[in-house]
Design a protein around this nucleic acid. Structure first.
Lengths: 252, 252
DNA sequence: CGGATTCTTGAGAGCTGTCAATCGTTGTGG
DNA sequence: CCACAACGATTGACAGCTCTCAAGAATCCG
């Protein structure tokens, strides 16, 4: 098979002991490279010769199906690593959504360093695992959740600042199309859902690309499901009834 | 965050040089444990004290959402590793679908061995990466594909033998409910789709739990999309028209 | 200001989920 | 051996959600 990791998230929530040099340190001395909004850092199919660390800005990782369908595999934020791979070609196109600043490292050199410093390999492994979990969560989100739940989850994701805290002001630098292709929906449904949230008084638009969450609890209960709660150790053998996760706020 | 790998697939397609002892060798001396069909190997939330290697049989990794929705994260086959984790609790329940034989290793001992033998770590890393890719492919499958495409993909997956070759005879040991919870559908839609495939002459039932593929090409073109073709390096900037991937066989 | 792009909104169709009934198989017990 | 229950699978009718197609509004940018 093949592997390519879209982004290795900076493990902000579970900080690694800082006594050791982190993966980021590999990039510290590299010069800053800037990309305009809309430009591509690399293309799907390109030779995977470099890794990048995001210093500033937001990017999207895009994959195109043969029939033209477009899928956004993930969004990249400052601190994320980009281009980690065991394949020699990039499997995704990565484009800047906002103006972006990156530091670049050759793959050869990166792998050398990883080989030389065991603690870096541990970190890489650990981050890969986080990425794995994120991918599976995304799978769950896409497979079993309604448009409302998807959008609520997305907004909560975007409302997290760099320390993982929830802010009431949410910046949405990406377009509706980006959101749609990330959530497996159409732009129309995304738009309608946001309108619905606004009409419900859960959020309010504060600008073209930003909004404020008025009822954080309502948004959370919409996002719903198993957010945060992992092991509840249920021993259900027969099929539990399928419930609609939305009734809560439909009446709001 | 959290991580837990459902299954580390045996990298059958890209065999690792056999000169070195593989991950499997760690389990070779462990006694065989048998589980009846329907029984659980471990439960979501249990202490993640052991790893398992599947010797025979098929299992499912199940996750339950708080609202009762059931998700099958993956199916496990002989050769797969099971319970690889960085967390101390299992995030999934794993149940035997058929009678199963496993070999067990304590997590402590597994991690010791991994630490001691660098080439094992490389293998683990590599498998983790494969698993990662599989998770992302699953994400794509679930987010952007119709019921027909999903089922076609599933059947192709099940038609792969242990060497990765496609066989015409397909065994489906799992129930419709398992398929549905894996594909993000309902049992009714799964059933209807299979009926449709049968009526189209693409497959035919050869037994209660097995079928034969009559038109492999048709099934493949149904499964469609970017199966196998990864980097086509398209530089499409504007949104391509969404096409129905099914018209081909609807007229068949 | 004007054009291009993005976003919103509406109407209608199609697909999938829901509810419900039936069929077929399996397994148990008389 | 048959009757019956239990379970899984199939099929039908219908509703609801999301997609599609289309038009219009809002915003951005030259």
């Amino acid at each position: 098979m093949s592997l390519q990791v879209v982004a290795i998230r900076d493990a902000r929530e579970a900080p690694i002991p800082l006594s050791q040099p982190g993966l980021s340190s590999l990039f510290d001395r590299q010069p800053l490279e800037r990309f305009d909004a809309g430009s591509a850092v690399f293309w799907e199919g390109d030779d995977a010769a470099h890794l990048f660390q995001v210093t500033a800005g937001i990017l999207r990782a895009v994959r195109l199906l043969s029939d033209g369908r477009r899928i956004i595999v993930g969004f990249l934020r400052p601190g994320d690593l980009l281009g980690v791979s065991l394949k020699d070609r990039y499997l995704y196109t990565v484009e800047a959504i906002t103006p972006v600043a990156l530091r670049r490292l050759s793959r050869r050199r990166f792998e050398e360093e990883i080989r030389r410093q065991p603690q870096l390999r541990d970190q890489l492994f650990s981050r890969l695992c986080d990425e794995m979990t994120a991918a599976q969560d995304q799978t769950v989100l896409l497979s079993r959740r309604s448009a409302d739940e998807k959008v609520a989850n997305f907004l909560l994701m975007m409302s997290r600042d760099e320390f993982g805290n929830c802010t009431r002001i949410v910046d949405i630098p990406m377009t509706r199309l980006d959101m749609a292709d990330y959530l497996g929906m159409t732009i129309e449904t995304v738009s309608r859902t946001i309108t619905k949230l606004t009409n419900s008084g859960i959020i309010t638009a504060t600008g073209r690309r930003s909004m404020m969450v008025l009822k954080m609890d309502a948004l959370r209960s919409l996002a719903d499901g198993d957010n945060g709660e992992t092991g509840c150790c249920q021993r259900v053998r027969d099929m539990p009834p399928h419930r609609d996760g939305l009734t809560v706020w439909k009446s709001a």
